[in-house]
């Protein structure tokens, strides 16, 4: 087999490898950027920051509903004896970020005041469940 053909084949092989990996990385990029545009069109969601001792600085983005509680099925699991299994939820809708207490035993506090009805949150509000404090950003 002439060396020229083998060299050509080798170059084609490596080029195809690059094409393959390039196409996959393109697909991954578009996958990620679809996520970005989708989050930016729904403007209702806000960031929430946990200040609990065990996981300081963890942030959550409220897309539509975010459940907080002690149950492993909750979106934000808090390991706190004062929290109920399904304690409360954040709902991101047209009117902004709304907090619903789900009849928890020990209550949910916004800026130190116990929540009795669904409450619209604004930036800077501190939400307290047991020892866990979350801040709306």
């Amino acid at each position: 087999m002439p060396a020229l053909i083998l060299t050509l084949l080798k170059l084609i092989f490596v080029a195809l490898l690059f094409l393959f990996v390039w196409q996959i990385s393109r697909a991954i990029t578009s996958h990620i950027s679809i996520g970005v545009t989708r989050t930016s069109t729904k403007r209702s969601k806000e960031l929430v920051l946990i200040r609990a001792d065990d996981r300081p600085g963890e942030t959550y983005k409220v897309v539509d509903v975010l459940m907080l509680g002690r149950s492993p099925q909750a979106d934000i699991v808090v390991d706190d004896p004062y929290a109920s299994e399904f304690h409360m939820r954040f709902v991101g809708g047209d009117e902004g970020l709304v907090l619903h207490d789900l009849g928890s035993t020990n209550g949910t506090y916004v800026n130190g005041r116990r929540v009795t009805a669904p409450q619209v949150l604004v930036k800077g509000d501190a939400v307290q469940v047991g020892k866990t404090v979350l801040e709306v950003r």
């Binding site: 084949l9 092989f13 195809l16 393959f20 996959i24 697909a27 578009s30």
Partner: peptide, 29 residues
């Protein structure tokens, strides 16, 4: 990307594997 695109990539990788084996054969005569 979809599952079908994944299948196309897998087909491509299979073809490249046999391409590589063919190249090794050709180089060895």
């Amino acid at each position: 990307m979809t599952r079908s695109a994944e299948a196309a990539f897998l087909l491509g990788a299979s073809a490249l594997a046999s391409f590589g084996v063919a190249m090794a054969n050709l180089a060895g005569g």
